[in-house]
């Protein structure tokens, strides 16, 4: 019920809010889609990916290039998801036998290879000079402007959310959780490890590619640096800030990551020592937030919220120790 009210509020926002904020909210929705994609793969399946920006980029370029060729808008969205999903399968297959650290490194290289390809294959992608994204036309109407983008992104977010909820209540989603927590017993429960992992990669990459089709509309001009490692780290920041292992977390994290730069822009003139005008403040702050979240609240904002809710529910009887968690100090992840 809360969610219905929330959705209604979201639906009427563009009527009241200024164009700029509507556009920014649209971008929040797009990032939330990628956040969910990253959450499914990293938060639920336990597979680290440092190349989701590359999947987003593949989707964005695919959709933009096809649009420029005159392909209908809806088809370009599907194509974006499919191309990114195939790329996800491609990187998923060889990384099946890797775990933890090595997977992180492999996806890192894959992401940077994609970024280089986007930059160097300039006959198709426009390289560093950028690729201007055409405005989609559906049934004779040009769907330009932030309001259209807002509703389209919201629809995409709802679609992806619906799909993720289905995944999580189906065998495939439970297989993902099982793989995260114990591969060996997942296997003896009849879960096909490699197939489930590749499926998770493909679904996650496909979702990121889908987001890419809308992200292309948001940025209007595509350049390779919009899809490099730093952006991938933003997506990881999303899931850490929001809280690993919850869809709520992915959305909260996306709101945070998109709105932090806006907050900086608003405060730019009010910060002391001209701090607000320092270049490089934004990535530095992202780093700081990531570090603080990991150090202070590994459960993220959603985890903290649940603690607060528990505290209120048990009000006068709550103690600090109710939410302390056991840590194992000599656990070795060399043994997988």
């Amino acid at each position: 019920m809360r969610y219905v009210v929330f959705l209604l509020v979201l639906l009427v926002i563009p009527v009241f809010a200024g164009e700029f904020y509507v556009g920014e909210l649209g971008a929040v929705f797009i990032f939330a889609v990628v956040g969910i994609a990253q959450m499914l793969l990293t938060g639920y399946t336990g597979l680290i990916s440092l190349c989701h920006a590359a999947f987003l980029g593949l989707g964005a370029y695919t959709a933009a290039i096809l649009l420029a060729m005159g392909v209908p808008f809806l088809l370009t969205i599907v194509a974006a998801a499919v191309v990114a999903g195939l790329a996800g399968t491609l990187i998923g297959l060889p990384t099946l036998r890797m775990s933890g650290l090595y997977l992180a490194i492999a996806t890192l290289s894959f992401g940077s290879i994609i970024a280089t390809v986007l930059a160097k294959w300039d006959r198709v992608t426009g390289g560093w000079s950028g690729f201007i994204v055409p405005t989609p036309v559906v049934l004779g109407h040009a769907l330009g402007g932030p309001v259209w983008l807002y509703y389209m992104s919201l629809a995409a977010l709802l679609f992806v959310l619906w799909m993720s909820l289905n995944i999580l209540r189906s065998p495939i989603g439970r297989a993902m959780i099982a793989i995260r927590d114990s591969e060996i017993s997942a296997q003896s429960m009849g879960i096909h490890l490699s197939r489930s992992k590749v499926t998770a990669f493909a679904i996650s990459a496909g979702m990121a590619g889908l987001a890419g089709a809308f992200y292309a509309q948001y940025v209007r001009a595509l350049t390779p640096d919009a899809f490099d490692l730093l952006i991938s780290i933003q997506f990881i920041t999303i899931i850490f800030v929001g809280g690993l292992g919850s869809l709520h977390g992915a959305i909260i994290g996306a709101v945070f990551v998109r709105l932090l730069p806006q907050a900086i822009a608003l405060l730019r003139d009010d910060l002391p020592f001209g701090l607000g005008r320092m270049p490089g403040l934004e990535p530095g702050l992202f780093g700081l937030v990531l570090v603080l979240v990991i150090l202070v609240e590994p459960g993220g904002v959603y985890g903290r919220w649940q603690k607060i809710a528990r505290y209120l529910a048990a009000f006068p009887l709550s103690r600090r120790s109710t939410s302390t968690r056991q840590r194992s100090f000599t656990r070795s992840e060399r043994l997988r």
Binding site: L230, I233, I236, T237, F240, P283, G284, F286, G287, L288, V289, L290, V291, I294, L295
Partner: peptide, 8 residues
């Protein structure tokens, strides 16, 4: 991820 954050 913490070291990535530190790097930034």
């Amino acid at each position: 991820m913490l070291t990535f954050g530190l790097a930034s």
